[in-house]
Nucleic acid binder design. Structure first.
Length: 422
RNA sequence: GGGGAGAUGGCGGAGCGGUUGAACGUGCUCGUCUCGAAAACGAGUAGGGUCUGAAAAGCCCUCGAGAGUUCGAAUCUCUCUCUCCCCGCCA
């Protein structure tokens, strides 16, 4: 969430930011109205509480029963007014918090304006698409023919948009996870985390998935738990309600988890293949950093994700996302792999800086120097990378005329001797 | 799932219904002493909110969470959460 002091002091700046991302700036004024009402109530009730505390102190010293009774009656009366005002304050507070949690993050000045994803900017494209002597097939044809992706049985078990990996396909996914974790932990300085796959609602509020984006979540029936839509959620919340020493920062974490997303999309869209599914695997990088370093950290985060694309030798491109496509970030970059079978660029990573938007929600703080007041740190995260789409890219880019798939060099040590899936 | 114990400041650990935001110890910071360090001594050391132009000061809230009793709750009652021990079950 945003700093209420910033909103009070520079409402026009906040309105402008919200307008840029296509959201309604009137929310700001509604919020400020509630804030004002809330603060008036606080001032009033606190004055009464101060008075009651004084009277209470007097009562404890009084010996004379008559005097005592008089003070007690006065205090009782104060108590009744306080109870009424406390109730009103709590209501105003709840309303205030709900509105503040609903407000989006503000785009960074360098983010290009835009109204749809078409306004995203291609920063650069790396690698040459391979020349095929035959027409490259989509991954679902190759995967089914090789019996490494089983769509029918996935549907049988769990319904549409679920799939089963088999044999070398399952092995390839496991190899990718292990390899990516190894690269990030051994070469990029991340510490591996294996978090729970279900979390409490407050944890989802921490990352910004709630209250605004709850419709994509799978909630567990009979428990106050939700399946995580990304490892970002548990990992970003790791240090919630803690005050870290500045010497502990930056913290780099990487986590492999399955991700569950109850995508509300039209039934006919992206139904074939494993591009858009309800459950997928992902390796996610999360950074906790000091505010002054967060944009430099975003650059290295992108580099870390890009290293994976490079090592796979699959053409990819880097996109700078426009104001319409930021999610809850202040700035975001996407990495897309080229998939020659389906003839499209596949988003395999989003690298974002959230500044203090998430840390305020999750109460993630650090002490800038020993003895100093705690401040909110900055959080970033980026996929490194999202699995089913990397699988698509490998299967389609490394396919041969006979339908077999060559395993990329970097993955061979992880494939138990398999060099070609046939 | 059954039974028992507990949850207090960075940590340990007191705590009577009314100068307890909290004794005492310890840790940490600063100072004195020292060539320096240790020891000793002295001082300081939670978070949030609100008011004020800012700072300082003040005031309010917070002793796991929530609700209640009371003029007044860390202290009494209830509910929940979590931790520890014993029994049962189990990957």
């Amino acid at each position: 969430m945003l700093d209420i002091k910033l909103i009070r002091e520079y409402p026009e700046v906040v309105r402008a930011g919200i307008r840029r991302r296509g959201d309604d700036p009137a929310q700001v004024d509604a919020l400020l109205a509630v804030d004002e009402r809330r603060r008036a109530l606080i001032t009033e009730v606190e004055a009464l509480k101060a008075e009651r505390n004084m009277v209470s102190k007097e009562i404890s010293k009084l010996k004379n029963p008559a005097e005592r009774e008089g003070k007690i009656a006065a205090s009782r009366e104060l108590g009744e007014r306080i109870a009424e005002l406390d109730k009103q304050t709590a209501e105003a507070d709840a309303e205030f918090n709900q509105m503040l949690l609903w407000l989006p993050n503000l785009p960074h000045a360098d983010v290009p304006d835009g109204t749809t994803e078409h306004d995203n900017i291609v920063v650069r494209t790396e690698g040459q698409p391979r020349e095929f002597a035959f027409t490259p097939k989509p991954h679902w044809e190759l995967g089914e023919a090789l019996d490494i992706i089983d769509f029918e049985r996935g549907v049988k078990l769990s319904g549409s948009r679920f799939f089963v990996l088999k044999g070398a396909g399952a092995r390839l996914q496991r190899a990718l996870i292990t390899w990516m974790l190894d690269v990030h932990t051994q070469q990029h300085g991340y510490r591996e985390i294996a978090p729970p796959y279900v979390v409490k609602a407050e944890v989802l509020v921490g990352t910004g998935n709630l209250p605004r984006f709850g419709e994509n979540l799978f909630k567990i029936e009979g428990a106050d738990l939700t399946l995580i839509p990304t490892a970002e959620v548990p990992v970003t919340n790791l240090y919630r309600d803690e005050i870290l020493e500045v010497s502990q920062l930056p913290i780099y974490h990487v986590a492999y988890t399955p991700c569950w997303r109850n995508e509300q999309m039209s039934a006919g869209r992206d139904v074939r293949g494993i591009k858009r599914v309800y459950q997928f695997d992902k390796v996610e990088m999360v950074k906790f950093v000091t505010p002054e370093t967060s944009y430099a950290e975003l650059t290295t985060l992108i580099d870390n994700a890009e290293d994976i694309c490079k090592a796979l030798h699959v053409p990819y491109r880097l996109l700078r996302l426009c104001t319409a496509d930021l999610g809850t970030a202040t700035m975001k970059f996407d990495l897309e792999l080229w998939a020659p079978g389906v003839q499209e660029w596949l988003e395999v990573s989003s690298c974002s800086n959230f500044e203090a938007y998430q840390s305020r929600r999750a109460n993630l703080r650090y002490r800038p120097e020993p003895g100093a007041k705690p401040e909110f740190l900055h959080t970033l995260n980026g996929s490194g990378l999202a699995l089913p789409r990397v699988m698509i890219a490998i299967i389609e880019n490394y396919q041969q005329a006979d339908g077999s798939i060559v395993i990329p060099e970097v993955l061979r040590p992880y494939m138990g001797g398999i060099e070609v899936i046939r």
